[in-house]
Amino acid sequence: MYDPHPRPPLGDRLFGASPRPRVPMDDVPHTRTWMSWPSRKSVWGRQLRGVQEDIALIARTIARYEPVVMCAPDDYSVEEARLACGPSVYVIGSIPTDDLWMRDIAPVFRRDGRGGLQAIGLNFNGWGRKQVHTDDAYVAENLARLNGLPFIRTDFVGEGGGIETDGDGTVMATESSLVNKNRNRGWSRDDVEAAVLDAYGADKMIWVPGIKGKDITDDHIDVTSRFVRPGLVLVQLPPDGRGDVWARDAREQFDILSAQTDARGRRLEVIRVEGPDTVRSRRSDFVDSYLNFHVVNGAVIAAQFGDGYKDAAARQTLAAAFPGRDVVQLDVDRLMAGGGGIHCSTMQEPVP
């Protein structure tokens, strides 16, 4: 049974010791959300304009609930982003970027246990050198410097979208995205696990196999499985008739997580979310994930796909999982045809 008042680890209670630094869950109060303006035709080609419109829609929607800072790589892009996003979004040109996936290129913010924040850099390398990252490789460090935060670089290579944390000692990830020679050549799973636990201030890592080489991320977990709070996980499952590699992966994640306990010994409660039966896009790499949502102050920003029944059911599940928050569903098909979603394009900065 879920314990709404979990006790801190014994070591955090003895002798008045300060709690160790820890990456909090997405649902803690935020100071702001960070985003990045897509600007390169070399990356997006003819899809660039539509993707820009989707990013602007996400930014304006989040700005109804909390401040949004949009990073743009040059003066032209700054003006372009300001025009598209409007006055509610703060656009800056001091942190250049190559692409829009702020979840993976920004630092992971860690509370230091003494009322401050640290910025943790995961050594972004273009998802295993699959895409240009000349500027993206330095976003984490540049953002930390702009914010005046201590910057700590991890030993392992990874991305924020590849690691889910419950903020209470448990993290989960796919082996395919981290135990992979394109990120951590020569590292064993135990090596990666120790480094992730140290970076996130966690005690237990739950692994699912994942899929190598089928998408640019090597199967980030935040498309399929998400922590809602300690002890509670959402997993999106495909329609019964689907038997492709992604459908098998989702069912495997559901089975593995349903049999797991977390760092506190709680058996995970796993709630299934039914994926859409139909989508508007014809792209084979379209990400039809309701779970690639972004939690903000007072709301959950998620996708809808034009499947009236399944869209409504997902909305109800998210509303029940995050009581007291609005659930806002957006049509961002052009973004999701590019291999990621709303969560992938955002990074929250928690209140210290």
Rank of each mutant, 00 (worst) to 15 (best):
I152H: 03
A144F: 07
G161K: 01
E159W: 00
K130C: 04
V157I: 14
D135L: 02
S176G: 08
G113S: 10
T170E: 11
N142M: 15
M102K: 05
T154Y: 05
D99Y: 00
G169R: 03
A140G: 12
M205R: 05
M102G: 09
W101Y: 15
L149E: 01
G128H: 12
V108A: 04
T170K: 10
T134Y: 10
A194L: 14
R110H: 06
G116D: 10
A119G: 13
K181F: 11
K181V: 14
I105A: 03
A144I: 08
R189G: 15
G169P: 04
A199M: 14
R153T: 01
D198L: 12
V108K: 00
A144E: 09
G160W: 01
D98N: 15
L100H: 06
G128I: 09
G126N: 12
V208H: 08
G167N: 12
N184V: 07
I92A: 05
I152M: 10
R153N: 05
E159M: 08
Q118F: 06
N180H: 04
G201A: 08
G161Q: 02
F156N: 06
V208M: 10
P96N: 14
F109Q: 03
P107D: 13
R185M: 12
V196L: 06
L143E: 00
A137S: 14
F156V: 12
A119T: 04
P96G: 13
N142K: 09
P107Y: 04
I105D: 00
R153P: 02
M205C: 11
R129A: 13
A173P: 00
R110Y: 06
G167M: 05
G116A: 13
S177H: 01
F109M: 04
E159N: 07
I163F: 04
L100E: 03
G186K: 12
A140P: 07
F156Y: 14
W127F: 06
G113T: 08
D136W: 10
G113Y: 06
G128F: 07
H133P: 05
P96Q: 12
G167C: 10
A140K: 08
D203N: 05
I92P: 01
V208W: 04
F124H: 11
G126Y: 03
R145L: 02
R189P: 08
G158P: 06
L197V: 13
K130G: 06
H133A: 08
S176Q: 05
G160R: 01
D203R: 09
F124M: 11
D112C: 15
F151H: 04
M172K: 08
V139H: 02
F124K: 08
A106F: 00
I120Y: 01
W187N: 09
N180K: 01
H133R: 05
R153H: 05
V171W: 01
R111L: 07
G161W: 01
I163T: 06
I92Y: 03
D112Q: 09
N147R: 15
P150L: 13
W187V: 05
G116H: 09
I152E: 03
